[in-house]
Amino acid sequence: MPPGSLVYVGEEHKEEVTISSIEFNEHEVNEKQHASLDDLKPMIHSEKITWINVNGVHNVEVVDAISKMVGLHPLTTEDILNTEHRPKIDFFENHLLAIVKMIDLEQDESELDIEQVSFILLENTVVTFQEKKGDLFDPVRLMLKENKGKIRKSGADFLFYSLMDVIFDQYLIIMDEMDDRIATLEGNIMEDPDNHSLQDINEYKNTILQLKKTVWPVREVVNKLINRKVPYISESISFYLQDIHDHIVQANDMVETSRGQLYGLLDVYYSTLSMKMNEIMKVLTIVSTIFIPLTFIAGIYGMNFAHMPELSLSWGYPAVWIVMIIITGIMVMYFKKKNWF
């Protein structure tokens, strides 16, 4: 298809696309849970700071209508509709497009829930496009409603930073959770390695690989955001953007550390499994060694010769048992003295 063709790329969703909006300044906040396209037109050009949040990008007509209101290029709209897009940032004369990934990890799951979020930043407006309803932005909504911090005293660029910061903080939370899981898994492997442990290692390796693909490109996005001077991003938030950069660097370092831990854990698994097998073989060898002389004695008296003096003696049978018990006791004492078991 020609460039700029508007086609949704991603998982199939049947939910209705919903739009919410928040208009605010230092003195008041107006929120709409279900805004229509007609409601958005005056908001985009309002003197108040506006945050428009679109839940769902599978409805091409809705995304296209909002994009035209904002004045996006068709290629930009095409990127928003492609939920498999690599994280990126593009700067234009009066707006920017930033695409990042929002991640979540269930308590008992190893697979990441990855959702694409597209940001459009204008002078007084932030538009966010999400794949589905539900996000990490409730702390920002709470700060707006309760007038906490400096978010209502600042512009759209600070709102943009606050939303991005929530997403990137989640990266660190997920990495802390993965570190705890890897530490628990290491303890289980040291105690009792089994096939389930190997399966967990492989699942965690896939999770870390997903994190690497998600987090690593964001570093480039933040670097461009810090170094590019545009009129709709004020110099006053440069320090906050640097804080985001530090978080991303830390997240990348944690990803690489966890990745190395998993490869080391794989070596520990095989080493522990080998040690466990060696212990089993040692026990079996000791048992076999003890039975060698006993088998020798039993073999001698199992021969069918007619003239074997001991066979005719009344104390022959108990004597053989006594000899066998003495030999077994001597061998066990010897092995114990050598600390072989």
Rank of each mutant, 00 (worst) to 15 (best):
E15K: 10
Y301W: 10
E28Y: 03
I330R: 00
E256K: 04
M254T: 13
R228Q: 15
D176T: 07
L241R: 02
F24D: 06
G56R: 03
N53L: 10
E146F: 05
E26I: 09
L262R: 01
M143S: 15
S36E: 05
P309L: 08
L209V: 01
D90F: 05
M1C: 07
K336D: 08
E28C: 03
Q107A: 10
E310W: 05
F168S: 03
W51K: 11
D192N: 15
N304H: 01
D104W: 00
F160P: 08
S258E: 09
G329I: 14
M254L: 13
I300S: 10
V283Q: 08
V268P: 04
Q242A: 08
R228Y: 04
M254P: 08
W216S: 14
F291K: 13
M164G: 05
D253A: 08
K224V: 15
N252K: 08
M1N: 09
A251W: 02
I44K: 02
L144V: 08
R259Y: 05
I182P: 02
I151F: 11
E106K: 09
D38L: 08
V63G: 04
I322D: 03
M333H: 06
Y263R: 06
H58R: 03
V287R: 10
L266K: 09
S5Q: 10
S36G: 13
Y8I: 05
P2Y: 13
V127D: 10
K150T: 14
M143T: 14
D108F: 07
L121R: 11
H307P: 09
M254D: 11
K88M: 13
E109W: 04
V323D: 00
E26V: 10
E111S: 06
I49N: 09
I174Q: 02
R86F: 01
S271K: 00
E220R: 07
Y334M: 15
V57H: 02
M333N: 15
E47A: 10
V221C: 02
W315L: 12
T257Y: 03
E23R: 06
F92A: 11
I99Y: 03
M43C: 10
I182H: 02
S154A: 15
L313N: 13
M69Q: 15
I99Q: 01
M277I: 11
L265W: 00
G71Q: 05
A156T: 14
K229N: 14
V70Q: 06
L122Q: 07
